[in-house]
Write a protein that binds this DNA or RNA. Structure first.
Lengths: 350, 350
DNA sequence: GTGAAAGCGCTAACAC
DNA sequence: GTGTTAGCGCTTTCAC
């Protein structure tokens, strides 16, 4: 194995102790809050720490405490949608805020191809982090099993598909009210008097995709199957689906797209085909991503979910579970999954 | 200090050694590549590892090797532009790819407000990571000094403003040819016969903003100052600047915006003010971010930089420096800063 | 309150 | 080749 770094040696507890004329134990106490140390001594130690620029070695500390003050965020998005889609970005931001206020570090793990599962599995098992936030599971994703196997405390982003299939009393997730949101969107289109309402779905191997389609069907149980086209949450997929729908049902007068990105692509394709929005075709999206929905032409009517808040919530749930683990007590009120609310934001497209 | 996690104890080297009937040293050898171990023994150990589901404890390993196989990515963007701007996203993706192929972990550190500098400083000093990739420095950013103080091997994203000001022979960065790119853009507008070419600049406390403005001035050294408005790379800022320019010089016939995001906002504002693009006003952006430039109406003519590749390059430089540090030899060819090339992508807006 | 001492799990000399 | 041993830097009983 390759030699590690050999830079200027950083000062150790030992060095501080010597300079301050106390024992290592005392220094350790001061560094960790200083309870039970006489004020005068504490001050002397603090000076020594300052003078030497001492910073605790985290590896040594973790070795004994078994804490890392770090949390992994795992995003399993083989198509690398991660960074083109503001959705993740916003969630990450919420998570980042919450974690940093708890002095915990965010460690981002991206799973791009199947080989990466190995690496991520090793990482989680390696005890680098105290817990994990896992996102955007697809069908048969090996991640949940991995996390469980190594006893990793986990909160999922979005409802995993197999909830209930196993003994998942322990499973915690945060999700938007996808189905309710879709219902809201489609009901709005109905209330506008639209008769041939199509939908561009998300990927149907993810619960968010399926749930939004279910919401559409709740309102239109006897709809024409030709009015349903599968997308994948991206602009490319959305554009393709819109073109398909137009080919199948040139007379459609409304579209509910399961993401703003897809809706924006739909607007474009509709324009290319000479349709006016909303006069000829009304369009509703899902997400209300500022950077997309407010900037389309016309601005998008869409279902708003507070994505950043979901991220914050996930982090908070995880931290709470972690805290409970530490204090062996029987869980007073074990955190449970949360479904966050949505609302319709009406702009010009429908 | 709070007790750490107390889950089921993970198997240790010791346990594997016992099960395989060998010493800890042998197991360690096998786990780390297995050189110098008889094949039969190696196999026995591997079985034991498998059976117990053994995974090395990283903290213990780091404690002795002083390696983390992890790299910090520090993004200092108080305005939280990080995640609304695909720019960072793409760089991260490049970095992530490169690091994971070197089996190194990406640890993302976001600096949102000034208090975070402390936390990040502690993190870097704490020896969590082998090196750091630092982004989007503003004027007087304390990060470079912090990194240097703790002897952190660092590669910067974008040229730090104070290059040359100190003894920075050691400083390595990756940057786009901002100035050359801006020149390309403005020359294109000139070649189109435009006479009153305005520019929306980036934030002028960042070198990328300043350099792009310099490029504009290279081509138009005697331009009217009223044709220059300061933006901040965001849509909001770009829109504001465009409105300002229109108010000052209603007769302008071209705009070079220093980012695609700002250019897209400019298109919108121009449309609102009844200008046709490109007939009345030609617009050129900078970045060529697929998700923005190709989707505007009309599609944006812009300066293309390969952002993902820059990320990859940064990671590669860092890894190389890290490797050199390990093998104490005098640096054979110390990696130096890199300026990546740009080219003009002509679409419909100019 | 403070110090002495025992590890946390691992790697790397060094013997054999 | 393989085993023995001495730490890496820290926290945490346990005496005093």
């Amino acid at each position: 194995m390759q030699q590690g770094r050999t830079g200027p040696l950083r000062p150790t507890l030992e060095a501080v102790a010597e300079l301050a004329g106390v024992s290592r134990a005392t220094v350790s106490r001061v560094v960790n809050g200083g309870v039970g140390v006489r004020a005068s001594l504490r001050e002397r130690v603090q000076h020594a720490v300052e003078e030497l620029g001492y910073v605790p070695n985290q590896a040594a500390r973790t070795l004994v405490t078994r804490r890392n003050d770090a949390v992994a965020v795992v995003i399993a998005e083989p198509e690398s949608r991660v960074f083109s889609d503001p959705f993740f970005a916003q969630q990450l931001r919420g998570i980042s805020k919450e974690l940093s206020s708890a002095d915990s570090q965010l460690v981002l793990l991206l799973v791009e191809d199947t080989g990466d599962y190995q690496r991520v599995g090793r990482y989680l098992a390696g005890g680098h982090v105290d817990g994990a936030l896992i996102f955007s599971l697809h069908q048969d994703d090996p991640l949940p099993a991995m996390a469980r196997k190594v006893g990793m405390v986990t909160v999922f982003g979005g409802r995993p598909g197999w909830v209930g299939a196993e003994s998942d009393h322990d499973l915690v997730y945060v999700d938007t009210d996808n189905r309710g949101g879709a219902r809201l969107a489609v009901e709005h289109l109905v209330s506008l008097g639209r008769k041939r309402i199509a939908t561009i779905t998300g990927p149907l191997d993810q619960t968010s995709g399926v749930d939004r389609l279910d919401g559409y069907r709740d309102v239109l149980p006897y709809g024409d199957p030709a009015l349903v086209a599968e997308g994948d949450f991206t602009q490319e997929g959305g554009g393709r689906a819109m073109a398909e729908l137009l080919a199948r049902r040139p007379d459609l007068d409304a579209v509910f797209a399961a993401s703003d990105l897809m809706a924006s692509a739909a607007l474009r394709v509709l324009r290319e085909h000479g349709r006016r929005v909303p006069e000829d075709v009304a369009v509703v999206g899902f997400d209300d991503q500022e950077s997309v929905a407010a900037w389309t032409d016309p601005p998008l009517t869409t279902v708003r979910q507070d994505i950043e808040d979901m991220g914050r919530l996930m982090a908070r749930l995880l931290l709470r579970r972690l805290a409970q683990e530490g204090s062996e007590v029987a869980r007073p009120g074990s955190p449970t999954s949360v479904i966050t609310p949505v609302r319709l934001v009406v702009r010009a497209s429908a």
